[in-house]
């Protein structure tokens, strides 16, 4: 399985949808730091169903990305399809303070 990181962006009705595929680590920096500029809706959904490992650098990048979306775009962030290990990781590192978990 290809574990390199990719973001697939779709504009859906009234929201921006980003599917996060692969491992999220230092290699994801350029893509994640460029992501806030693509946000043009008040609701942003992140789909983690194809996400592999997220290490501490990946967490740092997600926190930076989410903070910029909230501060610069004033948008609400939702995350979905997060596996159990990454859910634990999100709980203990403050990701869920910036983004709400949702099923859809």
């Amino acid at each position: 399985m290809d574990s390199s990181f990719k973001i697939v962006h779709q504009t859906r009705p009234l929201c921006n949808y980003f599917a996060m595929a692969g491992n999220i680590d230092a290699q994801a920096e350029a893509q994640l730091m460029g992501l806030p500029a693509k946000v043009n809706q008040q609701l942003v959904k992140f789909d983690f169903s194809d996400t592999g490992r997220i290490n501490s650098m990946g967490i740092a990048l997600l926190l930076r990305c989410f903070k910029r979306i909230k501060e610069e775009k004033k948008a609400e962030i939702q995350v979905m399809q997060v596996n159990p290990t990454n859910t634990m990781l999100f709980r203990m590192t403050g990701i869920f303070l910036l983004a709400a978990a949702t099923k859809e």
Binding site: N55, S56, M57, I59, M88, L89, M92, T93
Partner: peptide
């Protein structure tokens, strides 16, 4: 943060 994650897991 990496050390913190190692400890908690």
């Amino acid at each position: 943060r990496g050390l913190f994650i190692i400890w908690r897991f």
